[in-house]
Amino acid sequence: MIAAPAIQTSSLSKYYGRTSAVQNLDLVVEANRITGFLGRNGAGKSTTIKMLLGLIRPTGGDGTILGRQITNPELNRQARAHIAYVAEDKPLYRYLTVAQTVRFAAAFYRDWRCDVAGKLLREYELPLNRRVKALSKGMRTKLALLLALARKPELLILDEPTEGLDPVMIEHLMQTIVARAAEGTAVFFSSHQIAEVERVADQVCILDRGCLVLDRSLDSLRESFRRVDMVFPVDVVEREFQLPGVERIRANRRQMSVLTSANAEGVIERARAFNAVSLEVAPVGLRDVFLAMVNGLESAIGKEN
């Protein structure tokens, strides 16, 4: 039996006046997988997450989270009982102590695991009687993560979870994310740290200016994306290489660089037809794909030229 998607949206949109934050987003986040959610600042990642959790109302479209309609407040509330969420700014009540914060969170969730909470408190070396306002930024991030990781939710949503953490904690968190996915938790996390996403994610979604520009499994992305660098004896126009599977083209007189998500062979064939004097095909990493998707191909290959 195929598990229902943890998150599914259909034409989900959010407009602030005439400005669009998210446009016609059709997103599917599968259960039992780690899905990386990438995008530049202001791309609409946090807005999407807030719509999923019922914090803001979509202007158009709808969606489900753990099978419950996101725009229905009661169903969304029911879904939130099975979702652990760490927000980008790691919000915590400043006037509570660490112990009070942990007790507060534990009271709301049936999936709270006291043993895990105790273990994480020791590992993170959080001072129980210190008020949140007296904690360092790193400590606050650890506490916010603890509130999510001490549970066994069906869906774990992390918005920039590694911000403010030291490398040891980042490593610990990455291992925890993988372990949680292995236990059956769907993980949906946004990050600017592409290397982290590339390391743990099964699926990658890239959002740019509110639109979903990529939704692929990381394996298929690695297999299918290629960069083809070509040099020609005469100037060649971009139009000639606008073939199926070509995502971005950057042309500079006789030089051309093409990023393909499929059909690299077609591009090579076309290059040969134009008597390319140099032809180089290379696999690309997630970083290159991300930069190409959100900022045009020049950013992805700018360093090399």
Binding site: L53, L55, R80, I83, D89, L92, F108
Partner: peptide
Amino acid sequence: AVGTSTLTLTLPVSR
């Protein structure tokens, strides 16, 4: 304004 509404509103309770 102080940045904690996200924590409160993502609890499994109605507004």
